[in-house]
Write a protein that binds this DNA or RNA. Structure first.
Lengths: 336, 336
DNA sequence: TCACGCATCCAAATCGTTTTGCATCGCAGG
DNA sequence: CCTGCGATGCAAAACGATTTGGATGCGTGA
């Protein structure tokens, strides 16, 4: 409780009557110290409220004890849950988490953000779902930071991967629409074209239609953005089609919520005249009405797994790249 | 594009044929350097992709170029927007933002989180809305970090303050319910008792009732938590009262959404038989149906202001503590 | 010619840790 | 008595930047 910010290791050493080396050893435990000395040092540390300066420590150890999470949009509840998951595991390990936003709009901000982060010498980076270029990934890997990618394939670049079984998830959802609900004309609203989860999910949609012997209605596919606004725009297009769909499958919940807005405005009864489905099962999915039929994407668990992978690597795991695939589950609510 | 992570200032100096001092000077601009030398150095920096090691720099300068944001719950959309605001301003200034969660549940995690953060020697901390103890604030101030508190009064402790006009906002909202909507028995569901925004908002509710000559129905006040779950629990209590309310004023939108759940389950028509109002105007407020009558709380702008205050202080502003109050605005939707 | 000032640049100290290579001590075994 | 060996503890060398106090060279005015 004395001076809280200024006390250095030499102060502790003086107070305990030992050398700084010994203080360092009792703190790190890297060499044995006699019980009596250890007690004196620990007492001094407590009394003075000593906390090692992270810059000095980092300079010597070449570690920052900090990991980064990069996502396209902090505001998206999926990413928020993700962050909560990463943070929980990292915090327990004494790692600080910085979450950075690299908007997909107005050009590629990703490289700039990544440069900022690598300049910080982070120990590890979790790269959210992006249309990341190979150069971006190599930049991270080359900086010495461990890398965990989310929602991509292991073969696409360096680092470990965590992803939900998105193709399968979407396939199961569309199967359900086709087989158990009997929808005939099923449209698709995607996010930004080329951004990660979009492709997988679209693929699942196509698979389900294909296995049912349907042709994919290309005229009912539209790519916008992973937001409520995007959903509005996409749904407006689809519902104005000469032969509008009786179901709209959206690449995520926010898009679906936007689609619901449009359906309501135009007086389309959901699910009577139009089904709307989402993906992710964010909190809001069960708040809207009709509640959204969607697929749970275990965001928090994905974050946790990613953090665990990172920590394993930081602890010296030299094994080959790993890929963690988390299960999916269709949740059936009122919107379909 | 050469070695991306390993190049040091001496490498740059060697490549440019000057001393490290000169390199440092051209980068920081703290002393004049001839145009020719400057060009050579800048070229070498670019060619080698030099980025100063933050630990080494921090050790010398005693700054980390990092600010922290501490909130009770990352998942709460209000806090998410807040974070986005802080982050945007900080990023533009080259500051990294770390956002930390210190859950209010299961005991006071705040002191532990704060100790972690002060150990990191952050340049500044934005402290979200908490029931922070005076000791917590002094810990931050004593660590040397600049402090901006959110949603409290300037007199309550060290540091600057940013807050919405919450008492006034809630007062206006309840006024509207009383005068223009004619509700008679108006209940209140608060968050955790003692947590910051709760008190202000409750005060506004009381003021509005008082100026209308109503007595505050103490039996219709319940304190739970700032979550949808909290709202469910609180609403259940209120609706089971012997003389249930015809309007429920909630301390934030999540609580209100929980209250809507209960109303729907029990078949209470909203707003016919029961009005429900929120506070904050998070995205979800306009997604639920009926859409929530609420008060906008400019989360993102609060975050921006807080970051600006912090930066001013970091730039050497020594003036007396400042308090920024942002305006409120009632938004009238279908739930009342 | 000398002294002086300005423009440039450099050497070296410094920031607070961690870690390596020795020194010291006590004690057991020969 | 001497040697060797754990068990402990210390001094000093990193780590990679910033910054201060000079050094150097040059031009200018007396």
């Amino acid at each position: 409780m004395h001076g809280s910010g200024r006390v250095k290791i030499v102060d502790v050493a003086a107070a305990a009557g030992v050398s700084v080396t010994t203080v360092s050893h009792v703190i790190s435990g890297r060499r044995p110290v006699s019980a009596a000395t250890r007690a004196r040092v620990e007492d001094a540390v407590r009394r003075l409220g000593y906390q090692a300066d992270p810059s000095a420590r980092g300079l010597r150890t070449q570690r920052t004890d900090t990991v980064g999470l990069v996502v396209p949009d902090i505001t998206n509840p999926f990413n928020t849950e993700l962050a909560a998951g990463v943070q929980a595991i990292a915090y327990a390990r004494g790692l600080l988490t910085v979450v950075c936003e690299a908007p997909m709009t107005d050009g590629p901000r990703l490289p700039a953000v990544l440069r900022q982060l690598t300049a910080r010498r982070l120990d590890g980076i979790v790269l959210g779902r992006f249309g990341a270029q190979r150069a971006d990934l190599d930049l991270i890997a080359g900086s010495g930071a461990r890398l965990v990618r989310l929602g991509t394939r292991i073969a696409d670049g360096p680092g470990d991967v965590v992803r939900g079984a998105e193709t399968e998830g979407m396939r199961d959802l569309v199967r359900y629409l086709v087989r158990e609900r009997g929808y005939r004309r099923i449209g698709f609203i995607g996010g930004e074209a080329g951004v990660e989860p979009g492709g997988e999910r679209y693929e699942g949609y196509r698979q389900a239609l294909a296995e049912a012997g349907r042709t994919v209605p290309e005229d009912l596919t539209v790519w916008t953005g992973f937001t409520r606004e995007g959903g509005r725009a996409g749904a407006a297009l689809l519902l104005d089609a000469t032969e509008p769909p009786d179901a709209v499958v959206c690449a995520n919940d926010l898009i679906a919520i936007g689609a619901l807005d449009v359906a309501r405005e135009r007086g389309f009864d959901v699910p009577g005249r139009l089904a709307v489905t989402g993906y992710d099962d964010i909190d809001a999915a069960s708040m809207v009405s009709p509640a959204l039929t969607t697929v749970v994407n275990p965001a928090r668990e994905i974050g946790r797994s990613a953090a665990r992978l990172l920590i394993d690597r930081l602890d010296g795991d030299k094994g080959p790249a790993r890929e963690v695939v988390l299960t999916h589950q269709v949740v059936r609510r009122a919107s379909a």
